[in-house]
Design a protein around this nucleic acid. Structure first.
Lengths: 234, 234
DNA sequence: CATTTTTAACTGGTTAACCAAAAATTATTG
DNA sequence: CAATAATTTTTGGTTAACCAGTTAAAAATG
């Protein structure tokens, strides 16, 4: 089954139009932090779009912390000023979907940090989780089967042990696309999988021994191929 | 106007319940990548929740790249395997809201990279944007007014110039909460704002001169207070 | 019987009516 | 006239009916 992405551009377009209109409204009416936006009904009426579309746009701005909806009360402008509001909405409207290179670049940055933090902060439960992920990866890789998923679950287990919820969330958001791209571009082949077992084990041992610098170095080694691949793309 | 956060826990709870049920369904029915999920109507019927709730849950899983909805066709399991699917849903269900320390820690990590990339990749337009943000900050800070917003817009302009869409998005997602926390904890006081002008200018000059290492160093200096603040929290 | 055409059922998305809680307004009361 | 109580209006959230496109089944055709 092939997954098409036809309607997304249309959907984003109308959503972005509404977001821009909300921005204009905030500016025109000089709405300050904490002020109430017109009701969803009024907005859908004013903008001549469906209330669902208005709700979706509000939800997106809520995700970025710019608005806050309160049931049976209203939608409110967040406690950031008009300047930041305008700047951020501008950026949100221009956001492009992440390319592979940008994803990998970010992943390497994040993981060199999470592995360090994991070595510093991990508790015994974290260690067990990481070990389980490592074993699952090893089992799959030794069989010569595709182990991209188990690979990334190992890395996610480390991110979890870093005790940094923001980095953990970020890792979660980029992982699915990375898996898809990896399988698409065949980034990981068989012999790399076996090589990966050793590298993973070394990373695990460094975290277990609570040696942050060593853990980071081992992760760096592990990423060397990916690093080159990433920067050879363009 | 005070913004309460009462309903969120309830909303998340029911949404997470549905996500867990979708996970169980995928496992029970052995749905593989590309397979079609039962229709929203069937799910809302089976789970005994409203179709809106089902749609919201699907939307969240879509955000994390685990599902894909196609109009007039169905909702499909993404091209990642069951192992990654289970692991990621597990993590998503356990995701906690980001604490201030985790936000700042992540921000410092991201910005030490984006400023480097910006120095390497910035074009003339990027430079103009950064300069404008710098001037706006300077004007506000010299007047002794609160310039937290202009401060962060300067940093967002750098993130934009880094030409890494993923990091740019991540910076956007954490910025509003950082602004709110900064104003809440009064992280930036008056004399720091004036000191900030010099630091911002130095960062700008390094980016202009396309000296990545210098830019990173200047950003590090700029963050030194914040860094200490962050790690003194606990 | 294979192939094409037509029809019916099903899909996610949209719309409009409805709900309960919160605000705002009006009426009542001391 | 101020303070309280009752009522109406307004709100985001929910529900159910509807829409247009897709998909699968059935019928027609050679």
């Amino acid at each position: 089954m092939k997954l098409e992405v036809l309607t997304i551009s249309d959907n984003r377009k109308i959503q972005n139009t509404i977001i821009a209109k909300i921005r204009d409204l905030i500016n025109y009416k000089n709405l300050e932090p904490g002020d109430k936006l017109p009701s969803e009904r009024m907005l859908s009426d004013k903008f001549e779009v469906s209330r669902s579309n208005v709700r979706d746009a509000i939800q997106k701005l809520e995700f970025y912390g710019l608005l806050k909806s309160i049931p049976q009360s209203g939608t409110f402008v967040a406690n950031i000023g008009v300047v930041a509001m305008n700047g951020m909405i501008e950026d949100i409207l221009r956001l492009e979907s992440p390319d592979f290179k940008s994803l990998v670049e970010t992943r390497i940055l994040l993981e060199l940090k999470t592995v360090r933090l994991a070595a510093l902060r991990r508790n015994d439960d974290d260690l067990i989780n990481i070990k389980e992920a490592l074993d699952a990866y090893e089992a799959k890789a030794l069989l010569g089967e595709d182990a991209v998923q188990e690979d990334l679950l190992f890395h996610l287990a480390i991110a979890k042990a870093s005790r940094n919820s923001t980095m953990n969330t970020f890792m979660l958001t980029i992982t699915p696309q990375i898996i898809i791209d990896f399988e698409k571009y065949h980034v990981c082949d068989k012999d790399q999988a076996v090589k990966g077992i050793k590298e993973h084990t070394e990373i695990y041992e460094a975290i277990k021994a609570q040696k942050p610098d060593l853990a980071k170095e081992k992760m760096k080694d592990h990423f060397s191929v990916l690093y080159q691949y990433c920067y050879s793309l363009k």
